[in-house]
Amino acid sequence: MPGGGPEMDDYMETLKDEEDALWENVECNRHMLSRYINPAKLTPYLRQCKVIDEQDEDEVLNAPMLPSKINRAGRLLDILHTKGQRGYVVFLESLEFYYPELYKLVTGKEPTRRFSTIVVEEGHEGLTHFLMNEVIKLQQQMKAKDLQRCELLARLRQLEDEKKQMTLTRVELLTFQERYYKMKEERDSYNDELVKVKDDNYNLAMRYAQLSEEKNMAVMRSRDLQLEIDQLKHRLNKMEEECKLERNQSLKLKNDIENRPKKEQVLELERENEMLKTKNQELQSIIQAGKRSLPDSDKAILDILEHDRKEALEDRQELVNRIYNLQEEARQAEELRDKYLEEKEDLELKCSTLGKDCEMYKHRMNTVMLQLEEVERERDQAFHSRDEAQTQYSQCLIEKDKYRKQIRELEEKNDEMRIEMVRREACIVNLESKLRRLSKDSNNLDQSLPRNLPVTIISQDFGDASPRTNGQEADDSSTSEESPEDSKYFLPYHPPQRRMNLKGIQLQRAKS
């Protein structure tokens, strides 16, 4: 015994090295194993092979420090690593049964499904019991997946119906949107047309105001020219009257000059006056001389005659003075006559000038009245044309509004008919989907599995289990394997941990 101590140590070291070499393959693929292994699927088989106990299973599945599946799978690998070579062998058998691809990844061999460990530990009855539990578990999982698949199909059909409904609603909204954009385009076109009409109206108003201003300026210029013409006519008439007055005065002077006595007659009258003065002096001298030589009687007679002569001279002087006064009065009367005649001529000139001015103003008033009548006639014609244009424009607008209203009513009726057609199509689609759903539900009910399987069917299934373990590994792997896509769409199922009653199965096998 003492001599065998070193050999035992060498043997233990060799086993430990082999164990480390075995687990080295697992550690190399630890990331892939932790990512894809579900500990809840492996722990029943590991407990059946007595590699882990209930406490280890509870620690792996329910520990609060292991929230994710990767953490739980890593903890399970750590626990199996502590179990040595047996933990490695049982772990590979569980991978061979549940995850053939991972088994091939770790060992590089094809899975054979021999279950040597569980046969050694529990015997064939334990293997049968384990396989029966796994089959029931798989059936329950398949039923749950079928239910989930039916629910998802129903949800899918519902979503398809909602999608069709949303599509129809979208078509309806597109119809309304198209109608909205069309009405918006019509409104924009009408606004552009309105702005264009306003611009045209403004341009016409500006043109009309400009023409009116030009016409008023032309009328004012015409009036100024007419006033200048009238003033020139007035000056012409005044000059004609002055010329006529000057002509009359010149004719009067000419007549006075023609009626003036001649120079010879004046000289002859002056000679006669001198001769008479000479004779008068001679007679006076004779009379003076006679007075001195005459007697007293003759002197008395001469005195009487002288007195008579003096009286006659006085009378004559009075007559001469009277004649002079009369001549002066006649001259003054002639001057007054000439003055009055001049005033008369001036008044006649003024009267004729005023008459011509009156005629001029009368003509001017007639011209202004004619212009006013023409302006009123043009204004009435413009008003009439404007009223006709406004009436025609309003009539066109009324007809346009009428046609637009008819078009809008027809478009609304068309839209309502399209919407009604879309709604009826939606109703038809809904009815078809309901009919299809009812038909599929009836087919699913016919094809669904019963909840409680008979014992004979279970025994028959387990009677055929042994050949399947040898020759149909691919079928078992397809039913027991969970793909990543299934984990996305289906909830994980945790079967209840219970042991099955095998009395009925044993009785059935005894009868057979």
Score class of each variant (00 low, 15 high):
Pro67Asp: 03
Asp56His: 02
Arg86His: 12
Ser94Val: 10
Thr14Ala: 13
Val60Ser: 04
Thr128Gly: 08
His81Ala: 08
Asp10Asn: 12
Glu27Gln: 06
Asn62Thr: 11
Glu59Asp: 01
Glu13Trp: 13
Glu57Cys: 06
Gln141Leu: 14
Phe91Trp: 03
Glu19His: 13
Leu127Lys: 07
Asp78Asn: 03
Cys28Phe: 02
Ile79Lys: 02
Arg35Gly: 02
Arg30Tyr: 02
Ala63Arg: 00
Met142Ser: 11
Lys109Ala: 03
Trp23Ala: 03
Leu33Ser: 00
Gln85Trp: 08
Val60Thr: 07
Thr43Asn: 00
Phe91Asn: 05
Pro64Gln: 06
Gln141Cys: 10
Tyr103Phe: 00
Lys69Ile: 04
Lys143Gln: 08
Arg47Pro: 02
Tyr11Thr: 13
Leu92Ile: 15
Asp53Ile: 02
Arg30Met: 01
Glu110Ala: 08
Gln140Ile: 12
Asp9Phe: 12
Cys49Asp: 05
Gly4Arg: 13
Val90Ala: 07
Phe115Ile: 15
Glu54Lys: 05
Asp10Met: 15
Phe97Ser: 11
Phe97Ile: 08
Gly123Gln: 15
Arg35Asp: 00
Lys41Glu: 09
Leu61Ala: 00
Arg30Gly: 02
Lys41Pro: 02
Pro39Gln: 01
Glu54Tyr: 07
Met65Glu: 00
Val89Met: 14
Val89Gln: 14
Leu95Arg: 02
Tyr11Gly: 11
Thr107Ala: 10
His81Asn: 05
Pro100Ala: 02
Tyr98Lys: 08
Tyr45Leu: 09
Asn133Met: 05
Lys137Glu: 09
Asp9Tyr: 14
Asn71Gly: 02
Gly74Cys: 04
Thr128Met: 14
Ser34Asp: 01
Met132His: 00
Met132Pro: 04
Ile79Trp: 02
Ile70Pro: 01
Ala144Ile: 11
Glu125Cys: 10
Leu15Gln: 12
Leu33Met: 09
Ser116Arg: 07
Lys16Asn: 11
Lys50Leu: 08
Glu110Asn: 15
Lys50Thr: 13
Gly87Thr: 05
Glu122Ser: 06
Arg75Thr: 02
Glu57Val: 03
Ile37Cys: 04
Ala21Val: 10
Val60Asn: 00
Leu105Pro: 06
Met12Asp: 09
Thr112Pro: 09
Ser68Val: 00
Pro67Asn: 07
Asp10Ala: 10
Tyr36Pro: 01
Asp9Gly: 13
Asp17Tyr: 11
Glu59Val: 02
Pro64Thr: 08
Ile79Gln: 05
Ile52Gln: 05
Glu125Ala: 11
Glu57Phe: 01
Ala40Thr: 04
Lys16Pro: 13
Leu127Trp: 09
Thr43Met: 05
Glu121Ala: 10
Asp58Thr: 00
Glu27Lys: 02
Gly84Asn: 05
Pro64Val: 08
Val119Pro: 15
Thr107Ile: 06
Val51Phe: 01
Lys83Asn: 04
Val60Ala: 00
Gln139Tyr: 08
Lys145Thr: 11
Tyr88Asp: 03
His124Thr: 14
Ser68Tyr: 07
Lys137Arg: 14
Glu24Cys: 09
Ala21Cys: 08
Lys41Gln: 02
Thr128Asn: 08
Ala144Trp: 07
Asp56Pro: 03
Glu122Asn: 09
Gln140Gly: 14
Leu92Phe: 07
